[in-house]
Design a protein around this nucleic acid. Structure first.
Length: 574
DNA sequence: GCCGTTTTCGGCCCGACTGTTTTCAGTCG
């Protein structure tokens, strides 16, 4: 049992209570308690003894927390699970269906899952229910079909160019004075459900008309004076929500729709302490009838006597509990000096060492490490010890040609299924940089696969563990790795953990980065794993994820000057 | 269920849009 599991159980309880139609404020109380638990760093002991010390945890939720810690279960949750059919929560995925409607469908028509809902719609049974009609039936049917066909979340890297394209069109309109992206896209979450845009204009109807008449629009979901919601097909079909506001309200609206929802709740609560009200149109003082507008988001935070919070960390994950000095100076692209994980034609890359070096130098980098695959990874043309020696000769030749730039000789070495490494220490000690990673036997049980990684970390020549959890977003889950043990070992051995920037990987993710930094004091390396010069472009994904993980330049070895980097790498060997 | 230098009761973040209604509930962000 750990605090995360306790939080998850409280959250599940809240979700089921909501479906049953319980008091929404009570439901919210459990959600807040779950969130408080997730964000707190109290030990299990403190949690067991004095859970009430956490803000948002009172008598009721404290009793629930104690029960979970003592018995591993929660009677209330167990009963609710027996009372409510298992398929009910899945109905929440259908747009337009919320807890109230789902409860009514269950109560009146005994609908418990998507199949039964679809059947009832087709038989026209739903339109007879109070508050339902033919139009809602039609929307439900469409929702069910979409749910089954469309991926729930789009990769950030796929949504970004679409957002940019629409944004550009909007910015070119004479009626538009300013337009920006908002929502999870602006917060740079690894996946996004939709694209949020905020537009400043004095002529909302004209802009709305342009939007709804774009050739790529497949469906107008909603269209009003303040807001337009569309389904757009620009290579992939995605929902685009556009808010239209007067220029003076732009900043407040941008902030509001950047979210996150949880961050906004805290903002509003903060405003209430001053007796003010926050909405997407600004902050107002009802007592004096005053409205406050802002030219920059910084001013909005200042008004509430809060330090400015970058969009990427607006998640209510502790940003409200820090002073300006305590908030991180988040890493930026300009801080980045060199990529330390890439492949060349020597294995499965498409560029030569020199081409990769020149491309990196052009980006303003000062160094790179060439890290081709090792011998066991046959499909990728892994290198033998002998190949590595010959490759080093080429690397040295490139180094002699280039000015103010250094290519390090490295390898991405496989951690074999039985836990052995693909090269002996004699081979490894000749290299400048050794990355170890898993490319086989992903299905091993937790103990086996964790042992594999720990074993690699214990080797003094291994500097970095690449893409530590192995997940591929929307494709493949993480290995059954026990990450706390990996973090603990990294702390003991000084092993650096990678944040792999490939948009399908982003591994470690934001949550783990923050945890590794705050709880274990770890150091990380952000790399693109490029297989061609263009692969370097994905560094913006990695830096964005690092920002979401509260990382500062000092936490990331790729921002260090070369001599500091080499000192750290050599330190491992002593 | 939680919380309190306006409160131990009565609030709890706020507004837009849709579809159902004939003044509003539910959903969404």
């Amino acid at each position: 049992m750990n605090t995360k599991k306790v939080a998850l159980m409280l959250l599940e309880l809240a979700n089921l209570m909501e479906l049953r139609g319980d008091n929404p404020f009570k439901v919210n109380a459990y959600r807040r308690a779950a969130r408080a638990l997730e964000n707190s760093r109290v030990s299990l002991e403190v949690l067991r003894e004095r859970p009430e010390e956490l803000a948002g945890v009172g008598k009721g939720t404290a009793a629930a927390i104690r029960e979970i810690l003592e018995t591993g279960e929660l009677e209330q949750l167990k009963q609710l699970k027996e009372e409510l059919p298992a398929g009910l929560p899945s109905l929440l995925e259908i747009p337009g269906l919320g807890p109230k409607s789902i409860h009514a469908l269950y109560r009146e028509l005994k609908i418990t899952n998507l199949d039964e809902l679809e059947e009832a719609v087709k038989e026209g049974r739903i339109r007879n229910l109070a508050g339902f009609g033919e139009k809602k039936e039609k929307n439900m049917l469409e929702g069910i079909r979409n749910y089954r066909e469309r991926p729930r979340h789009h990769l950030l890297v796929h949504a970004l160019p679409i957002a940019e394209k629409i944004l550009k069109r909007l910015q070119e309109l004479p009626e538009v004075s300013r337009a920006e992206t908002a929502g999870s896209l602006r917060r740079m979450k690894e996946t996004v459900k939709d694209i949020d845009l905020v537009v400043a204009t004095e002529a909302p109807s004209a802009v709305a008309k342009v939007l709804t008449e774009m050739p790529e629009v497949t469906k107008v979901v909603a269209s009003g004076e303040k807001k337009v919601s569309l389904l757009i097909d620009l290579g992939l079909e995605i929902q685009v929500d556009v808010r239209l506001v007067a220029p003076s309200q732009f900043i407040s609206t941008l902030h509001h729709f950047t979210g996150s929802k949880e961050h906004n709740v805290r903002i509003r609560q903060r405003a209430k302490e001053f007796g003010w009200k926050v909405s997407e149109y600004g902050i107002c003082d009802p007592a004096k009838g005053e409205d406050f507008a802002f030219r920059e988001e910084k001013e909005l935070y200042e008004k509430l006597q809060l330090p400015y919070v970058a969009p990427e960390i607006r998640e209510d994950r502790g940003e409200f509990e820090r002073t300006a000095d305590e908030l991180p100076r988040l890493i930026r692209l300009e801080d980045y000096r060199g990529d330390l994980h890439m492949h060349t034609r020597w294995s499965d890359g498409t560029g030569s060492i020199k081409e990769m070096a020149l491309a990196a130098q052009k980006r303003g980098y000062r160094y790179i490490a060439v890290t081709d695959h090792s011998q066991s990874l046959r499909v990728a043309g892994g290198l033998t010890a002998e190949d590595l020696k010959r490759q080093r000769e080429e690397i040295e030749a490139v180094n002699e040609e280039m000015k103010d730039f250094t290519v390090l000789a490295g390898v991405e070495m496989d951690i074999l299924p039985d836990g052995r490494l693909d090269f002996s220490d004699e081979v490894l000690k000749e290299l400048d940089l050794v990355i170890a990673s898993i490319h086989s036997s992903f299905q091993q049980d937790e103990e086996t696969i964790t042992r594999r990684v720990l074993n690699a970390m214990e080797n003094p020549y291994v500097h970095i563990i690449a893409h530590p959890t192995g997940r591929l977003i929307n494709r493949r889950g993480p290995y059954a790795l026990h990450l706390d043990r990996v973090f603990q070992k990294a702390k003991e051995t000084g092993t650096i953990l990678e944040l792999n920037s490939h948009p399908y990987r982003l591994d470690l993710n934001d949550i783990y980065l923050k945890k590794g930094k705050e709880e274990y004091g770890l150091t990380f390396s952000i790399n693109t794993d490029a297989h061609a010069p263009e692969g370097f472009d994905f560094i913006n994904m990695g830096v964005a994820t690092a920002r979401r993980g509260w990382l500062e330049p000092a936490d990331v070895i790729n921002t260090w000057p070369l001599d500091q980097l080499l000192e750290r790498l050599n330190g491992n060997h002593s």
